[in-house]
Design a binder for these strands. Structure first.
Lengths: 238, 238
DNA sequence: TAGATTTTTGGTCTATTGACCAGTTTCGTG
DNA sequence: CACGAAACTGGTCAATAGACCAAAAATCTA
């Protein structure tokens, strides 16, 4: 780490690897990158993720990452400008997998009621699948928040995720009406806030049975909210 | 940092300063502690908090803490067994202030509807008051989660906070009925999950106007939930 | 106030950290 | 196959980290 940079802990150098316009993990992020390089880069990302799971952001070092990735330490700095850049690339990497499970979960929904339920269940299962990764996700998000150059990543992550929910819900409402879409957005925000809070609770105070009940309660509450917002006309069947 | 300890980044030594039974900040945590010592200890805690706000958990060092606290570096280690112990003491310190604003916020509520609204507004205002401290709170909570010896702190923090909500709500229901109290707990969990998620959204993607709308939506949703759980019989006036 | 105890000081020690580079190997391609 | 570029190696370096300690100062007690 250099002398006191403008941002104490975050990425201080203008990050050449990641830019707001183009995801870091997008194919062809660099002009020239051979097959082997892509593999090594991938190894470093997954290795860093594994290392983060084991050690946490505060305990992570370039050496541990290199060890987990089974890659020479020098190679790490060949592929990533700095430790910061690598860590932020991992955050990006994690975000890519997030909404995939959501899109799959809501596929085939017949109405908004069903869609809300499926979306929340998909969100929950995705988190439940590996809670340690969830911790890393939160750690990295907070980490990105610290750096002026990376704050946009946290922002984009949340916006993208909300957008994914909005898109899912939009299939079952009049997507042409701007007022309706505003309400869909409000619903999506509340849905995501709820599930995020439940995940946080589960992390801090693990109790799967309780969390499942919370998710179920949340589903019903959100369906009621959708009715209140005029997104569903039919009475609640439950 | 020593060689690879059993917990990589967290407090590894059995923490002599904090125990599950007695809060770290409780008066008389040590058998003998003079007036000056207590003052210095307090200075270190607030200094560490300020340093954490400025640098984040990943960027924090004992020297920066000592500088913020205007205390000699050696003095830091005289009062706290390790950097870990100090950081966790800060988490404890933060938790103490949390439910105070809640208790004050809900005071004088006439019914559960009002109480839910006041509680959520109090929660939100507390967070809104200093969002940077909220970041620190999350950072430290995740930090505590990493150490086997400190995990209980994160757990206790959440349980205490939920308990505070339950206590507030319990004033407006039949607190003798176990079934009712179970539902109150479910309500409190959902309330806290929601507000936590909204705070997280505001941190990641700042938009005060949006967050206020979310809080408002959450209040209405939680009131409806309370009705669904049979905690409120009167129809929603809104 | 005198003596004992608590608290502070400032300097030091060792390990570890992120970064860097010159030289070597591997790879892709014409 | 041969050449240039890409990718990797292993070692090094300055900086910084947390911890520690002996002596000095401040504080408390009898």
């Amino acid at each position: 780490m250099k002398n006191p940079p403008e941002t104490p802990s975050g990425a201080d150098a203008p990050n050449a690897e990641i830019s707001p316009d183009k995801p870091a993990t997008a194919p062809g992020a660099r002009p020239r990158m051979g097959r082997k390089a892509r593999e090594t880069r991938e190894k470093l990302l997954t290795g860093a993720l594994a290392a983060l799971c084991a050690e946490g952001v505060t305990g992570i070092t370039t050496r541990k990452i290199a060890e987990f990735a089974q890659v020479n330490l020098g190679t790490l700095h060949y592929h990533f400008e700095s430790k910061d850049a690598l860590l932020l690339a991992v955050l990006d990497y994690l975000g890519a997998n997030m909404d995939r499970s959501l899109r799959m979960g809501v596929a085939g929904s017949r109405n908004l009621d069903e869609c809300i339920g499926r979306a929340l269940l998909a969100d929950w299962r995705h988190a439940e699948d590996d809670l340690t990764i969830q911790i890393v996700q939160y750690e990295l998000t907070l980490y990105a928040l610290r750096s002026a150059d990376a704050r946009w990543m946290a922002r984009r992550q949340y916006n993208d995720y909300i957008r994914a929910h909005v898109d899912a819900f939009a299939l079952h409402v009049d997507a042409e009406d701007p007022e309706t879409m505003r309400n869909v957005e409000r619903l999506a925000q509340l849905v995501m806030a709820g599930i995020d809070g439940i995940i946080l609770q589960e992390l801090a105070s693990p109790d799967m049975a309780r969390s499942r009940v919370s998710v179920d309660d949340l589903i019903h509450a959100m369906r009621a909210d959708a009715r209140k917002l005029g997104l569903i006309q039919t009475p609640d069947a439950t």
